[in-house]
Design a protein around this nucleic acid. Structure first.
Length: 1020
RNA sequence: GCCGGUGUGGCGAAAUGGCAGACGCACAGGACUUAAAAUCCUGGGACCUUAAAAAGUCGUGUGGGUUCAAGUCCCACCACCGGCACCA
């Protein structure tokens, strides 16, 4: 494949330095109060030793990678891309004088180990540990400067003890809308009217989506429990349970039969499981939920306080899906509740200004009103009901009665899986309920329909349909021959002109705009499918008291009118749903929850005390679900049933649980008393101004002020709405409860781009285009691999792998090597190496290699200094901007230049090695050591040597080349003194022979001189 | 459909509104070598003239615009990638 001869002995150099770093614990980050060994290079750089307080430590910099799931397939080339970028920055920041925290760990709960266990009976822990060992070997062979003393695994009981502990915090908290934050459940106040027989009212106390089911069902189930909370009435207990941030809900969930578990909304894509792509069906089940919806507004607005890419923020905004509108109550016509009150149908709309255009209503097939209507409505269709209004989509037959029709339609939607509903035809279906509603603004009777294009889970599960101004309502109305009433007049007629049917050319001229709009208002049917539905800006028409108002004023006025009459109110809705938090798995964190029965025989839940954590999963022989469909944990009878008759929760937490807070555990990974110590947390996560003004003796610039939270977080886009939303949510809860000091966990976040296969396709086993990092390491070494991944292009971009490119940077490292070493001595080394019998012997032979004789302890020339300082400037600026590819180019330029020097000053080459060190640390360390010993320099740890500063004075040119253009076209390049003034530049430009030929016969109109940049002569 | 991003040589890519293509890959020619590999040196956007050189014309997805000057700013469109998708 590649070279027959190594460019340089990386196979000896790399293990040698990895060993040295590990031995010295060179990259250990010190917490406030840690004992710093005096010999540690960090202690020497900062003149510290012993126990040091936060204020004495240098400013902190927390640089984090998304920890990997240790799969059996081993490391993928995508992993080292992000890891190399963060490692380069960690090393750079360390050299700049920061106390850098750069940790690594394992997101080790997960499905594959469990599936393997089901097949083979091998305990998932065994598989997981083997995979972690392999990942550790691979990651360590890349020479990353992680602080391995903080390594963690989410499957470690010492870790998940605290995951369970945080769950208890969620369980024991509620969201107070007054303070807009989480509070301990003890602060919950109970409504005065609350009493045991009014549990139904509880359901109306809160309006958070996803909660209704929990309140009615669980509330009722728990109503009789007295022993659970002896100081509280049962209704109070039910109320309290309904307010917890972790609550139980019996609601339709995403059930994946193939995986044998439920999934969160975020884990379902196009009706299939994100993992494996198996079909997912909706099924009502009792599940644990986390009340992330309470945080929707803060999760949304706090995006403005953090430094993430626009696209990522946008993805989160879309997922949260905030929309402002109004809820409006319609009364159902003709029929009434048993007590004689009117039946109300509440809808949500973002376009209350189109209320006068509502010509029918639609409710979701699962809507509660369906059940009421089934009991109340006449047996027969209203007279004159068109045939297609009664037609069942199952068999295209007319149903004999509305009740029968509704039941058939419900059966039809339940039969259709989510996949069918989204994938194939988007053709709308529905059926008339036989009932009518009264439009509150004009008293019109409009038919109520059931259709599955209205979702039960969003808004109120019911809509007012305005076919003239909504695409979906329009399609539906056209299909079933429902009324279409125009209530918005376009502001500009052009949008009508362009959309006129083409079979009437020239019927409307552009000047007849008013006529056109009139025609549109009088005969909208002419515009069906072209300008109708009209969904753009306009003014209200046919709308009584809001006529002639623009959309925004119309919305405001009608909403105020509705509120005044008690018919509706302004509302904000979110697409975000509560987080389904339980899984029917073995290999996850068990819930620290037990179930008990009260005197009436009803089940209720209770938290285990903190002292009983960690709650370990039981040992099992068989990891399959039980034959009757219970989760695997239910197989362990001894574990399941407690002596007092209570039973453990058998669900486990999803994989996301562990990754929601791992970045906090790194801060204080060994703490047995707390999930993270207060001092450690506030030092690393807080943005304390006091420590940021500190200057390092060798640095001339003050260190950059640190940012709140993790300073830099790098990982793939695949976590845009899962991990990153969940972690932000947990962090905010912990913040509200006073356990962390920032409201956001990750201040700056960068997504690395995908690395594709050499064919430009996504790497996958089936395509056979997967590149194995181990192969690259064997052939080119870690430094070349690191350098290549950074040289491919901008970190954020998607880019194809090209092994030839690795050879290119590998050749560059070879050139660096030859810049420093004597060829003769290297040949001797190579000959000796072939006969050396042991690895240790071969490593010793490295000392045979001598420095290049041209390297001398002489003062550098001005030209050499200029080359060096241009490099320092470019590399430093590019590192600050995370432009690794151009930083590497700059180093290549330096090396190409330095190769031509007859004498190579030690000082220049030494500084160059500092620039190289973050990128290719092994090679840099080896050459650094050789340079220091050959010239008897003061020993100094490369990783902690102060980052070189460039001197702008050295970059000043005495003479510069200035392009001269005539009429914007470049014609000549002139040489002038760097400090030439505009007049001189102008004169020099005009005296150029080439320029003169282009000016011949023309008069000069204007001359633009940009100092030190260019001259442009405008002539005609 | 909606939101976000990206379009520059054969390829990966550079370019605070100021000499488009730095750096690298691949390619071609040369030096070294018995030879190959490795290494070192040289070359190149396209087109048109030319023996060659020099000169010229065109060139950053397409079409307009702003500007002395546009890959870069503005408007419209096209293509590709990613996300969401019957969310009222």
């Amino acid at each position: 494949m590649a070279s027959s001869r190594r460019q340089y002995p990386f196979h000896l150099i790399e293990p040698k330095w990895q060993h040295t770093w590990a031995e010295q614990q060179a990259f250990r980050a010190f917490n406030p109060g840690d004992e710093i060994p005096p010999a540690h290079p960090f202690a020497q750089r900062h003149h510290l030793s012993g126990k040091v307080a936060a204020t004495q430590l240098p400013p902190q910099y927390y640089i984090l990678d998304m920890f990997p799931y240790p799969s059996g397939a081993g490391l993928h080339v995508g992993h080292p891309e992000g890891y190399t970028a963060t490692d380069i920055l960690a090393r750079y920041r360390r050299a700049c004088g920061f106390n850098v925290l750069h940790p690594m760990g394992w997101d080790s709960f997960g499905l594959p180990a469990e599936q393997y266990a089901v097949k083979t009976g091998q305990h998932p822990r065994v598989t997981t540990e083997a995979n972690i060992a392999n990942f550790t070997r691979q990651i360590k062979s890349l020479g990353f400067s992680y602080d391995w003393s903080r390594e963690l695994a989410t499957t470690d009981p010492d870790y998940f003890k605290w995951t369970q502990w945080i769950f208890l915090k969620l369980y024991n908290s509620w969201f107070n809308p007054e303070t807009n934050g989480a509070e301990p459940i003890e602060t919950l106040e109970y409504p005065a009217e609350l009493c045991a027989d009014e549990t139904d009212k509880v359901g109306q106390a809160s309006r958070l989506p996803g909660e209704r089911e929990a309140q009615t069902r669980v509330g009722c189930a728990d109503a009789g429990r007295r022993d659970a909370c002896p100081t509280l009435e049962p209704a109070h207990c039910a109320y309290r349970d309904s307010k917890r941030l972790a609550y139980v809900s019996e609601a339709p969930v995403n059930w994946c039969p193939e995986l044998g578990t439920v999934l969160a909304n975020e884990e379902v894509i196009d009706g299939k499981s994100e993992v494996g792509g198996f079909p997912v069906v909706r099924k009502p089940m009792r599940q644990w939920m986390l009340r992330i919806t309470a945080y929707a507004e803060r999760l949304l607005s706090d995006l403005d306080t953090i430094d993430w890419s626009d696209s990522l923020k946008e993805m989160q905004r879309n997922w949260i899906g905030r929309s402002e509108g109004a809820e409006v109550d319609f009364e159902v016509a003709d029929i009434r509740n048993d007590d004689g009150t009117a039946i109300k149908l509440r809808v949500f709309t973002t376009r209350p200004d189109t209320l006068f255009g509502a010509t029918y209503m639609v409710i979701a097939p699962e809507h509660k009103l369906v059940d009421r209507l089934l009991g109340l409505i006449d047996l027969n269709w209203p007279s004159g009901t068109p045939s297609e209004w009664k037609r069942s989509p199952i068999d295209d037959q007319d149903c004999e009665s509305p009740g029968y029709g509704m039941l058939r339609y419900q059966a039809y939607t339940i039969d259709r899986s989510d996949m069918e509903r989204t994938a194939l035809s988007k053709d709308k279906t529905g059926i008339f309920t036989g009932a009518y509603a009264i439009n509150p603004v004009n008293g019109e009777r409009i038919p109520i329909w059931i259709a599955d294009y209205v979702l039960a889970s969003y808004g109120t599960g019911a809509i007012m349909a305005v076919p003239a101004h909504d695409i979906r309502d329009f399609e539906f109305a056209r299909k079933f021959g429902l009324n279409i009433k125009v209530v918005v007049r376009p502001m500009r007629s052009e949008c009508l002109m362009l959309k006129l049917p083409s079979d009437k050319p020239g019927e409307f001229e552009i000047e007849h705009t008013e006529e056109l709009i009139e025609r549109y208002l009088k005969r909208p049917e002419l515009f069906y499918g072209t300008a109708l539905p009209f969904v753009y800006e306009g003014t209200a028409v046919n709308s009584d008291f809001i006529n002639e108002l623009g959309i925004d004023e119309a919305k405001e006025k009608i909403t105020a009118w509705l509120e005044a009459k008690g018919l509706g109110k302004k509302t904000i809705n979110y697409k975000l749903r509560d987080w389904l938090f339980s899984r029917q798995r073995y290999w996850g964190e068990p819930f620290p929850i037990i179930w008990k029965k009260d005197a009436a025989g009803d089940l209720y839940h209770e938290a285990l005390p903190e002292s009983s954590l960690p709650l370990l999963p039981p040992a099992l022989e068989d990891y399959k679900p039980t034959p009757d469909g219970q989760p695997p944990l239910a197989r362990a009878k001894d574990w399941l049933n407690l002596p007092d008759g209570s039973v453990r929760e058998t669900n486990t937490m999803p994989q996301w649980a562990g990754s929601c807070w791992y970045y906090l555990r790194y801060l204080d990974a060994k703490n047995a008393q707390s999930f993270v110590g207060k001092d450690a947390e506030s030092y690393w996560m807080g943005s304390v101004a006091a420590v940021c003004d500190r200057r390092d003796g060798a640095d001339t610039e003050p260190l950059q002020k640190s940012t709140p939270g993790v300073d830099l977080y790098v990982g793939g886009t695949e976590h845009a709405v899962l991990h990153l939303l969940y972690a932000r949510f947990w962090h905010k809860v912990l913040f509200d409860l006073g356990h962390v000091s920032t409201s956001e966990p990750f201040f700056k976040l960068v997504n690395q781009g995908l690395i594709q296969g050499e064919d430009g396709q996504k790497m996958s086993k089936s395509r056979g285009n997967v590149v194995n990092p181990d192969d690259i390491l064997t052939e080119f070494g870690a430094d070349a691999f690191r350098l290549y991944e950074m040289f491919m292009g901008p970190l954020q971009d998607t880019k194809p792998w090209n092994t030839r490119g690795v050879e290119g940077v590998y050749r560059f490292l070879g050139r660096v090597w030859r810049l420093f070493v004597d060829e003769q001595s290297e040949t001797e080394f190579e000959q000796a190496e072939t006969t050396a019998e042991s690895e240790a012997k071969r490593k010793e032979l490295l000392s045979l290699i001598q420095l290049h004789p041209a390297i001398k302890d002489v003062p550098p020339t001005a030209a050499q200094l200029k080359t060096l300082h241009a490099g320092i400037k470019k590399v430093t600026e590019d590192l600050d901007g995370m432009r690794f590819n151009t930083a590497i180019s700059a180093m290549m330029v330096f090396v190409n230049e330095a190769m031509t020097w007859e004498t190579k000053p030690v000082s220049v080459l030494r500084t160059f090695l500092q620039l190289l060190a973050p990128f290719a640390p092994h090679l840099a360390e080896e050459l650094w050591a050789k340079l220091h010993s050959a010239f008897s320099l003061q020993p100094s740890a490369l990783a902690y040597s102060p980052w070189p500063q460039f001197d702008p004075a050295l970059l000043v040119e005495s003479e510069i080349e200035i392009p001269v253009s005539v009429n914007g076209k470049m014609r000549d390049v002139i040489k002038v003194a760097a400090d030439a003034d505009n007049a001189t530049l102008e004169a020099a430009a005009l005296s150029s022979e080439k320029v003169k030929t282009f000016l011949a016969g023309k008069t000069i109109k204007k001359i633009i001189v940009v100092p030190k940049k260019m001259v442009n002569i405008v002539a005609a």
